[in-house]
Structure formats: C-alpha cells, structure tokens
Lab assay of single mutants.
Amino acid sequence: NQESVVAAQLIPINTALTLVMMTTRVVSPTGIPAEDIPRLISMQVNQVVPMGTTLMPDMVKGYA
C-alpha cells in the first residue's frame, strides 16, 4: 500500500511547506504520494490544513 503525505500539524493558509509539517501514512483515499515530499518543500497550501489531514493535489499551489 502506498503512503500519502499527511499534515503533521495545523498548516495555516498560504504557508510554505517544510519537512517538519508533513508525515506519511497509508490512507484512503490516497493523496499526494510520499515520494513527492521533496517536491512539496517550499510550496504553499491554498487552504487551512488541519493536523492529520491528507494533502491532496488541489490543496498545494502549483502542484497539480
């Protein structure tokens, strides 16, 4: 089963992602794949992401 990127903390809107903000977990439905974490660093979220929420492609500016 593929791991997806999950918020390790509350991420406010327009925050640039850092490694410490993200963790990985096997979730359903699947979100952004864990191997894309290096690509996500410094990208901004376009909404508030509560802790434990799976990051979906449409939540990250410039990802999709």
Rank of each mutant, 00 (worst) to 15 (best):
L55P: 01
G31V: 04
I32H: 01
N1G: 12
Q9H: 09
N46T: 11
Q44F: 10
S28H: 04
I11D: 00
L55C: 02
E3D: 11
I41Y: 10
P33T: 14
Q9R: 06
V6S: 04
P50M: 14
S28E: 15
A64G: 14
A8I: 08
L55N: 01
P57Y: 11
N1L: 15
P57Q: 11
A64R: 06
L40T: 02
E35Y: 06
Q9D: 09
P57N: 11
T15N: 05
A64T: 15
V49I: 15
L17P: 02
T15H: 05
V60T: 02
S42R: 08
V5A: 10
V5P: 01
A34I: 08
T24L: 10
N46G: 14
G31I: 03
T54H: 02
D36E: 07
L19I: 05
I41T: 09
K61Q: 07
A16I: 05
L19H: 11
M56I: 13
K61E: 04
A64W: 03
T18E: 05
P12K: 05
S4C: 11
R39L: 09
S4M: 03
N1V: 14
M22Y: 01
T54S: 06
T54P: 05
L40Q: 01
S28D: 15
P38C: 05
S28N: 08
E35S: 13
V26D: 15
V49G: 00
K61Y: 09
L10W: 15
A64M: 14
V26A: 11
S4N: 02
V5Y: 02
M51V: 05
L10N: 12
T23K: 14
V49Q: 01
T53I: 13
M56L: 08
P33L: 06
L55M: 12
P38K: 05
E35T: 13
P33W: 08
M21W: 05
A64H: 13
T53P: 01
A16P: 12
D36V: 12
M51F: 10
L10S: 11
T18A: 07
A34E: 10
V6E: 06
Q47S: 08
A7I: 02
K61V: 09
N14Y: 07
I41D: 03
Q2I: 12
V60I: 11
E35H: 12
Y63R: 02
V45D: 00
A8R: 14
Q47Y: 10
I11F: 01
I37L: 08
V26W: 10
L40S: 00
I37A: 07
E3L: 05
P12F: 04
V20A: 07
D58F: 13
Y63I: 03
V27N: 05
T54G: 02
A16Y: 09
I32K: 01
V27T: 12
D36C: 14
T54F: 02
A64D: 06
S42L: 04
P57I: 06
L10C: 15
R25I: 03
L19F: 13
Y63K: 02
L10G: 10
D36K: 15
P12V: 03
T30H: 11
D58S: 15
V27E: 04
T24D: 03
N14P: 01
L10D: 11
V27M: 07
T54M: 04
Y63E: 03
R25N: 05
T30G: 08
M21I: 03
A7N: 00
M59T: 04
I32P: 01
A16F: 09
T30N: 15
M43E: 04
A64C: 15
R25P: 01
R39E: 04
T53K: 12
M59I: 13
E35R: 07
P12E: 11
M51K: 10
P29W: 04
L17D: 00
V48I: 13
N14V: 02
M59A: 13
L40H: 00
L40Y: 02
G31L: 02
L55E: 00
V27I: 06
Q9G: 05
N14T: 04
M56Y: 08
M51P: 06
V6Q: 08
L17T: 00
S4Y: 14
M51S: 06
T23V: 11
D58M: 14
P33I: 12
A16W: 07
G62Y: 08
Q2E: 15
I37P: 00
V6P: 01
T53G: 12
T53M: 14
S4P: 01
L19S: 07
E3P: 06
T54N: 02
G52I: 02
V5I: 08
T24Y: 12
N1K: 04
P12A: 10
L19R: 11
A16D: 04
G62A: 14
I11C: 02
P57A: 15
V20I: 09
G52Q: 13
R39F: 05
P29Q: 11
Q44H: 08
A34T: 08
M22S: 00
V6H: 03
Q2M: 12
M51E: 10
T30P: 14
V27C: 04
V49Y: 01
Q44M: 07
G62C: 15
P12H: 11
A8P: 01
M22E: 00
R25G: 15
Q47V: 05
M21P: 00
M56S: 07
G52H: 13
S42A: 13
Q47H: 13
A64Q: 12
Q2C: 11
I11H: 00
L17I: 06
D58A: 15
A8D: 12
L55D: 00
T24E: 11
M56Q: 12
P29G: 12
V60H: 01
I32L: 06
I37K: 14
I11A: 00
L55K: 01
I37Y: 05
